[in-house]
Design a protein around this nucleic acid. Structure first.
Ligand SMILES: [Zn+2]
Ligand SMILES: [Zn+2]
Ligand SMILES: [Zn+2]
Ligand SMILES: [Zn+2]
Lengths: 130, 130
DNA sequence: TTGTTAATTGTTATAATATAACATCATGTA
DNA sequence: TACATGATGTTATATTATAACAATTAACAA
């Protein structure tokens, strides 16, 4: 069997929902929203989320246990994510900064570890909340 | 009342345990271990963990829901943490890299957001697991 | 020293997040 | 056809974290 190019039914339903939101959604809030589409169990949501994360369509905001759509059309940065998070209004934005990406991509520790992925979350106050 | 300088009983018990481990511990594993010291409920553990994180004695590894002691004696980097995580053996190491810290500290996005904190997690394979 | 405040503790219950285990169905390949 | 793989559906359960309330302790000021 070939690696699947197209998304499955549940994956599409859940990706659509996440893409409609510009802010991260939590798994159980997704579950609530897709019940009308016949998705009834947490596992169905988590399976779709896992897959979508794996192929880079969405990212998990680890500190918030929430999922946000990747705005980068080619999703080549699925394994190298940077977010800014407002600690007051919880607004989350994905950051694409070339210099920062380069710096992180090239970072080497002194232990000979080989990195294939990173996740960076900045916390602070957005303009509205300052 | 002044800001407390010394740790409370529960905070000490739990910090001792975390400091004895060079790897992150999970809250319920901590709970299991401190039951013999009279700490019986999750909330007692989470309250101590919250405080210890707040004062920079420990850090939370967000992607693992686990807590590790800060090795930096002055804990001035409590709000600016970098970790490397081996995806095979789950070994976690706190990284102190001056250049990287500078770069992250000085990072500005194009939205005028004011950062006071960040957390960076690198994932890969450690030397043993390559 | 007494009243006040804040931090901490103890306790029970419950919320929120995530996975195990197993059966079934659909699709591409030998 | 037979087989392998990925996706689905379902029930139950595991794991992580907080709510709500009462009691206790430590610092401080009048
Ligand atoms: Zn992205
Ligand atoms: Zn904000
Ligand atoms: Zn540290
Ligand atoms: Zn390893």
């Amino acid at each position: 069997m070939q690696k699947q190019e197209t998304l499955s039914k549940n994956q599409k339903i859940i990706l659509d929902l996440i893409e409609k939101s510009d802010q991260p959604l939590k798994a159980y809030s997704i579950l609530f929203d897709v019940k009308k589409k016949g998705i009834n169990a947490p596992l169905q949501v988590y399976r779709a989320l896992d897959k979508l994360v794996e192929i880079g369509k969405i990212h998990k905001i680890e500190s918030r246990n929430a999922f946000i759509a990747c705005k980068n059309s080619k999703c080549q940065i699925a394994k190298a994510t940077v977010f800014s998070i407002c600690e007051s209004c919880e607004d989350v934005t994905e950051i694409h900064d070339h210099k920062l990406s380069e710096h992180l991509r090239d970072f080497k520790d002194n232990k000979g570890m080989k990195y294939n992925k990173y996740n960076l979350e900045f916390f602070g106050l957005c303009k509205k909340c300052i």
